[in-house]
Simulated scan of single mutants.
Amino acid sequence: MTRSVGWGRRLALFGVAVLLAAAWGSVVQTQFNLQALVALEVDVPMQVRTTTTLQDLAGFGPVYAGIVLAAWLPAFLGAALLLRRWPQCRVPLYALAAGVGVIAAIRTIDAFAPMPVLIDATRGTAGLLAMAAGSLLAGAAFAWWTRPRRRRL
């Protein structure tokens, strides 16, 4: 016999997962941007890295959380529908949906943004995949946290 996670807890865990993905993405984009400065021979001491990262978490983090949320809603709906066919693939389905969803959202935003890209770290494949990796891991975490559990008798 299995026991599923209640909707309130599921929504809370969804929120936590979105925040994890947003924090990861914010830190990644900050470090990619700072590394671009280092490549131009600008000295970026650890204190500046830390301060800039914290400022970006507070400033860019909420914006990116909105992007993750907009990406995940349709992606997780698709994963939930596929889950009916392949229930044993819960974690991979949600992980893949989260990663691909964020890539699709970022590329869609870039297509409409007046500048070449909205998030400079995603200009190249490495940055885009690094940001998607955080989304993928957070999506997998959500799937794991909300998996049906077997009751002990």
Rank of each mutant, 00 (worst) to 15 (best):
L34R: 04
A98Q: 03
R149H: 09
A65S: 13
V48I: 06
V38G: 11
I109E: 14
L137V: 10
R49F: 04
A97T: 05
A75V: 05
V100E: 12
T125D: 03
L19P: 03
G99I: 02
G78S: 09
T53E: 08
F112K: 09
W144P: 00
V18W: 01
L11A: 15
T52G: 04
V18P: 00
L20M: 07
D120H: 15
T51C: 07
A105V: 03
I67K: 15
G99D: 01
R85C: 09
A105F: 01
P74I: 08
S26G: 09
L34T: 04
G101Q: 05
A23W: 01
V38H: 12
G99W: 00
S26M: 03
F60H: 12
I109K: 13
V48C: 01
G61C: 03
L34F: 08
Q55K: 15
A21C: 08
D56A: 12
T125F: 09
T108I: 04
A141V: 02
V68Y: 12
S26E: 02
Q35P: 01
T30W: 04
G6P: 10
M1F: 08
L136Q: 00
L40W: 04
G59Y: 13
G66D: 14
R152C: 09
A138F: 05
V63F: 11
V28R: 06
P45N: 08
A113V: 07
R147L: 01
W72G: 14
R10P: 06
A58N: 09
R10C: 13
A71Y: 12
F76W: 10
Q88M: 13
R147D: 06
V5R: 10
